[in-house]
Design a protein around this nucleic acid. Structure first.
Lengths: 202, 202
DNA sequence: CGTTCGTTTGAGTAATTTCAACCGAAGTGG
DNA sequence: CCACTTCGGTTGAAATTACTCAAACGAACG
């Protein structure tokens, strides 16, 4: 349908409020999706990894509801939404898949970070990213994470300083290693326990 | 397509993990959608008000991802999903509307409570509910809120005691009144300020 | 009338934020 | 090539916020 295009770090694919026309699939690299709050502060809503779709939140209002910015050199594929609708009328399977993707998106937003302490939040964040890489065929144990700690803290709703301390704590505990944006999961089981995905006794 | 059915308080419409077959539209009353975490504790994911759809998160896995329980005497309409798909192949407008509804659901999840203090969280919660009632033609100023404070605290990720104190605080500030599950918004502007939806100077 | 349930209250404790300063790596301009 | 600035991250200490625990309360109910 369309070919993959490459963008450098900090390039913006679409902007909050702009007219909606296309969905974007991440091919490689990573994007952050954010919007500005009432005081003009950036609020990061999600990070988009290879294989994931951006722009779904723009369908209902026919304008994008967030801004997409590349966090590192990345490539993506653009899918004009009207064309997608036309094709899906011919091939209902496409429509069903779109519904499934959106359903999954709704579902995944529910696994919220609310209710967790800072340590559990960060552990869960790392675990989630790891599983998303795994689902796309990448290593779940070690990956490049082109996100600044400031952005992670923003996304998780905690102070930058807290995040720094917790990151050090997770490393001291031997759960992960993090250096120069390379994240290594040293003890997946332990990480899941800290993220409260399993009870510690199991 | 189907007629409206009535259920009493505490009746369950569908259960987390059960095979997915239908969407449910709330006609009147209110439902809570929850699931159990790894330690068996209830985690409330949303409250469903009249006009809102439940079950969308079950499409992708073909099993419900949460449990729906009536919080008060309520009525609902059941829509078998396969029938919906069949009809939507004939009438693409239905398909488009479904996509829009799901898109809106994805978008609304972005307005997250992360990052807010307890006072702002509760104010935002009240404001959101109020707007959802308004959008369906009900009063935005005064409504029956059949949710226990325990459930609100659970949903917002704070201690029950904290919620009780904050509720009292909002009343002392003159923003709202709350008695016998009747919630009255006394000062919408102030409520929005507290919820950080506008800066205090405006 | 006694019990339960949902809520409230107080006091102490724990977790997180804030503020201020510092650090090291990387990039910039003279 | 070197000083300078910036940026992302780190550290410590004080202040704030929210949680926990324990107890009491009032309304509803059988």
């Amino acid at each position: 349908m369309t070919t993959s295009k490459v963008v450098e770090k900090n390039v913006q694919l679409f902007n909050d409020g702009e007219q909606f026309h296309s969905l974007y699939i991440v091919h490689s690299g990573m994007f952050k999706n954010s919007s500005l709050d009432e005081n003009g502060k950036e609020r990061i809503l999600r990070f988009s990894l290879p294989g994931e779709i951006m722009g779904l939140d723009g369908i209902h209002a026919e304008s994008y509801q967030s801004t997409a910015i590349a966090l590192t050199t990345s490539s993506y594929c653009k899918i004009p939404f009207n064309q997608l609708l036309d094709v899906s009328e011919e091939f209902p399977i496409i429509q069903r898949n779109l519904l499934k993707i959106m359903s999954k998106e709704i579902y995944s937003n529910k696994k919220t970070y609310i209710d967790l302490g800072s340590t559990a939040k960060l552990a869960l964040f790392i675990y989630n990213i790891s599983q998303r890489f795994k689902n796309r065929g990448y290593s779940e144990k070690e990956f490049y994470l082109p996100i600044s700690q400031r952005d992670i803290a923003n996304y998780l709703g905690m102070a930058e300083e807290t995040l720094s301390r917790i990151f050090k704590k997770l490393q001291k505990l031997g759960a992960v290693n993090y250096k120069k944006h390379i994240l290594t999961i040293l003890n997946k089981q332990q990480l899941k326990e800290i993220a409260q995905l399993i009870s510690a006794s199991e």
